Computed example of a mutant assay.
Amino acid sequence: MALTPNLNPRIIEALYAEALVLSEEVRAVFDRLRQGHDKRALIGANDDPEADLAHVQLSCEALRTTTRIMHCLAWLLNHRAYFAGELSELQLRRHGRLIANFPLSDPLQVLAIPADAQRCVHDSERLYARIQRLENAWRGATQPTGSAIERLRSRLAMAIPAAL
């Protein structure tokens, strides 16, 4: 059961494993960085506004990155369910969409965070772009052309000569 030649259970499973590993790495990196900011705040080292801005930028990037990965995981889980026979293709098409054009991180904000967090942000953007390409290919490969009425007329025209 394959939706397109580019989308099959092995690809979905490989991407799912990659997304899980990335989500754990992102959690660990941003938790470690957040804890470092929290410790500095407790000892009063964060009295300057630049440190507060850095903390907000870090929080924003953490939220944006984890949300991006969660959207990827949701899309992958829906496709895993389809390949396992738990969802029909119609259910998958209705409820298994990836949010189109999820905003990329602001490059200037990303430069303001530590290198390991920057790598996590970029890895999440690359994963999202790969899944978005699969989504576009999958939806584009099976999108019906014309309106529903035109498709019905075409089917009727093919069925009527065969019946005579």
Rank of each mutant, 00 (worst) to 15 (best):
M1P: 02
M1N: 01
L3P: 00
L3H: 02
N6E: 00
N8C: 06
N8I: 06
P9A: 11
P9T: 04
R10F: 14
I11Q: 09
I11A: 02
I11K: 09
I12N: 03
E13L: 08
E13T: 09
E18F: 03
E18V: 00
L20M: 07
V21K: 07
S23V: 05
E24P: 02
V26M: 08
R27L: 15
A28S: 15
A28M: 10
V29D: 03
R32M: 15
R34K: 13
G36S: 14
D38F: 13
D38K: 14
A41I: 08
L42K: 11
L42V: 02
D48M: 12
P49A: 10
L53R: 13
L53C: 03
A54V: 11
H55L: 05
Q57S: 03
L58G: 02
L58E: 04
C60H: 14
E61R: 10
A62C: 15
L63P: 01
L63T: 14
R64K: 12
R64E: 05
T65L: 09
T66F: 14
T66Q: 14
T67N: 05
M70L: 14
H71M: 10
W75M: 07
L76C: 03
L77H: 07
R80T: 11
R80D: 05
R80Q: 08
A81G: 05
A81R: 13
A84T: 04
E86I: 10
E86W: 11
S88P: 07
S88H: 11
Q91F: 05
Q91T: 03
L92V: 11
R93F: 07
R93E: 01
R94L: 08
H95C: 06
G96I: 05
R97Q: 05
R97E: 02
L98T: 06
A100Y: 06
P103G: 04
P103A: 06
P103W: 08
L104H: 14
S105N: 03
S105P: 05
P107A: 13
L108R: 15
L108Y: 12
Q109G: 03
Q109L: 13
Q109N: 09
L111E: 11
A112C: 11
P114N: 12
P114L: 13
A115L: 15
D116T: 14
Q118I: 08
R119N: 11
D123G: 09
D123N: 15
S124P: 06
E125N: 08
A129I: 06
R130I: 08
I131S: 04
I131G: 02
E135C: 09
N136I: 13
N136M: 10
A137I: 13
R139G: 02
G140Q: 04
A141W: 09
T145R: 05
E150N: 00
E150D: 00
R151V: 02
R151Q: 01
L152R: 15
L156F: 04
M158C: 00
M158S: 06
A159R: 02
I160T: 07
P161Q: 03
P161V: 06
A162L: 12
